[in-house]
Simulated scan of single mutants.
Amino acid sequence: MLKYGVTHRLSTTYHPQTSGQVEVSNRGLKRILERTVGENRASWSDKLDDALWAFRTAFKTPIGCTPYKLVYGKACHLPIELEHKAYWALKHCNYDLKTAGDHRKVQLNELNELRDQAYENSLIYKEKTKRLHDSKIKNSVFNIGDRVLLFNSRLKIFSGKLKTCWTGPFTIAQVFPYGIVELSSTNGPNFKVNGHRLKQYFGGDIPPMVVPDLQTFPMDQ
């Protein structure tokens, strides 16, 4: 990593915001499966190959092309398009082997340029998404020894409406760079979480209210 200038950043568990590209891909596949599976949801694995094919041949805004074109350097010609004589498919489909071979060599030479352009488009998209995400985050400064509450983001099948999602309080044992905080509890080992899931805890015993002695004055006659 030092040789190639790679910065190694660790992400904590139960924080899917650090895997944005994976989450977007999974969300797209989930929507396709929701529309294709029948009443028997157990048949999702039978539809997975078709869902992946539809996902790979669909245009993606972050990279500016389809994943199929990013891998093979050309658009995908579906059999149904040739059967129904789609204009764009017949226009790009050349049955002359020599001409098609020369055109294919040009496409392969342009593949690296296509991938570089897709990388730049993806980088711009990620920067915009990061700015939008960071604009909604309130910066909190945590110090060692502070007491905090932890947001419980684990999946629950039966969640109570009136049950709080905050657990704790915990004590901050150590603060790491990139927003990782190590917490300590009285009845368990220390563990690391993302700082976005924490908030300050201001609980405790209420101090007794001291009422000063009041001097009484005689009433005016």
Rank of each mutant, 00 (worst) to 15 (best):
V37Y: 07
E39N: 08
E39M: 10
A42D: 15
A42R: 14
S45Y: 08
S45A: 06
D46M: 01
K47Q: 11
L48P: 08
D49G: 01
D50S: 11
D50E: 14
A51T: 09
A51Q: 07
W53C: 06
F55Q: 14
R56C: 01
R56K: 05
R56F: 00
T57S: 04
A58Y: 03
A58H: 06
F59M: 05
F59L: 02
T61S: 08
P62S: 00
I63K: 01
I63P: 01
G64H: 02
C65K: 00
T66H: 00
Y68T: 03
K69D: 06
L70A: 13
V71K: 12
V71T: 14
V71E: 10
V71C: 08
Y72T: 05
G73A: 02
G73D: 02
K74W: 10
K74A: 03
A75H: 11
H77A: 08
L78W: 07
L78I: 10
P79A: 07
I80G: 03
L82W: 04
L82T: 01
L82E: 01
L82D: 02
E83S: 07
E83R: 09
E83W: 13
A86V: 10
A86R: 08
Y87N: 05
Y87W: 02
Y87R: 02
W88V: 05
K91F: 09
K91I: 02
H92E: 14
N94D: 05
Y95T: 13
Y95I: 11
D96W: 10
L97E: 09
L97K: 13
K98A: 10
K98L: 14
K98R: 12
T99C: 13
T99W: 12
A100Y: 10
G101N: 06
G101M: 08
G101S: 12
D102H: 09
H103K: 15
R104G: 07
R104H: 10
R104T: 07
R104P: 08
K105Y: 11
Q107F: 06
L108Y: 08
E110Q: 15
E113N: 13
E113G: 12
L114H: 08
R115V: 05
D116G: 09
